[in-house]
Design a binder for these strands. Structure first.
Lengths: 247, 247
DNA sequence: CTAGTGCACTGGTCTGACCAGTAGGCTACG
DNA sequence: CGTAGCCTACTGGTCAGACCAGTGCACTAG
């Protein structure tokens, strides 16, 4: 128990070494989005590995959203800018295998969107407010399909105004997951028209509160709006859990 | 604009078809964690593809955290239970390439942990409270290394008590990312001892509030505790953004 | 009955080959 | 001289076959 503490050596596979090096280059900024990797045949020379190893490494990098390759492209794989699709993917998986309930998702957004709006009350600019107003106008004019997109634009503007990129990405991801889970149910809701009108009114109230700089009010409105919109699709006990957030 | 809207056909590669089928089997529950996939040579027969195609598909599934394969294992790849490592990975990438500041991460946790504690005030059981108390005891007794682990255990107990798995996972992930970013800086902090003692005291206050069922108080304490612990490592303007959450 | 050995299989890697597709230069035609 | 079309030299996607080191299990020798 006193000797040197040897760490268990895990067999590190060749393709992992390749992944590490390229990943490091991308995340450190040595490779910027839009740049191209060398071709697979060139990479196998540089790394001194077989092409299958290079290809498996590229598959992993592609699965992580760092790189994209296109057949026939005379340049190599393209370095991508960060996009939350991988986050969305893994969160969708979480939702499916961990059986996340719709209630948990709504609860999560009630928390995060309220926080975003609270921060936005301090940091919002006129441009942000204009974006939100434009999104609400779109919501009024839109059909059922466009409504969700306009709503997403509104909340994205709020999140950007709040200034926290992590909150912005997370709310966006969770909204996408929710849409994937319940869009059909929402579309068939008998009171959909009324819900949409009510939602629009709530959003306008939020804008007014933001303009007035009243963060707590805007946060309350946001939570209430979210609750009203989804409560009808939730079992009673989940509704109760959500009401815990409504003060 | 009136004709049939043809969708652009994306060339779907063979390995993607393999990924889809296996992924569907896992997420639908047809394959449960612990079960084994057939061997690669068996899969290439079942899917009528070459082994490299099978292997690339497995690499993708492995990158998504759904399976794991071990050399020499007479059984095939193992189906894994969901774990947030993939979420952690992509969020770490987000932090690096999007240059998430420490302040944004702290802010995020202030929001989510406060929400968790608010929910926990309603749903906590005696077992949960006992776990939290045990974690705080560990924090008192622990050295610098163990402190973080005990703190994590405390917050995990709170998050579980809150009953929202998504909040639980996200706080856990963000904490891990933060640790990766600032653990060295925290370890070298001159007032580390004092911070730790203060943190312990705050945690005990949170437990008391939870026992009393006072959610709003517990939430305030949580936000304050988080702020006090990290504020010293933040530039002034980020500190100001955090104070916006302290009422 | 146990300790030890071997075998049959696994995943990891490499080589070499072929295909379909792309981009860009080249050619031939207008 | 300009341009339309072809040609070639690449690309990534896929397959086949081979070898290696490692594993688990059945079998065997003690």
């Amino acid at each position: 128990m006193g000797g040197p503490r040897f760490e268990p050596v895990r067999a590190v596979r060749a393709y992992e070494r390749v992944v590490e090096q390229i990943e490091e280059a991308v995340e450190s900024g040595a490779l910027t989005p839009g740049e191209r990797l060398p071709s697979e045949r060139e990479l196998m020379v540089q790394f001194s590995v077989g092409r299958s190893t290079v290809r498996e490494a590229l598959r992993v990098l592609q699965a992580r959203g760092l790189v994209r390759s296109r057949p026939g492209d005379p340049n190599g794989a393209e370095v991508l800018p960060f996009s939350p699709v991988v986050l969305k993917k893994s969160m969708t998986t979480l939702a499916r295998v961990s059986e996340l309930s719709l209630g948990e998702l709504v609860q999560f957004r009630m928390v995060l969107d309220a926080a975003a709006v609270l921060l936005a009350a301090r940091l919002r600019t006129e441009e942000h407010l204009a974006e939100m107003a434009a999104a609400v106008d779109d919501m009024k004019a839109a059909d059922a399909a466009g409504f969700g997109a306009a709503d997403a634009a509104f909340h994205d503007a709020v999140a950007r105004a709040g200034g926290n990129k992590l909150i912005q990405v997370c709310t966006d991801v969770v909204r996408a997951v929710m849409v994937g889970l319940v869009e059909d149910r929402l579309a068939r809701a008998p009171d959909r028209e009324a819900l949409m009108r009510r939602s629009v009114a709530h959003h306008e109230d939020v804008i007014a509160a933001l303009r007035a700089g009243d963060g707590p009010l805007a946060a309350r409105l946001t939570r209430q709006s979210m609750y009203d919109y989804y409560a009808g699709h939730l079992p009673a006990e989940e509704r109760a859990a959500l009401r815990a957030l409504l003060e």
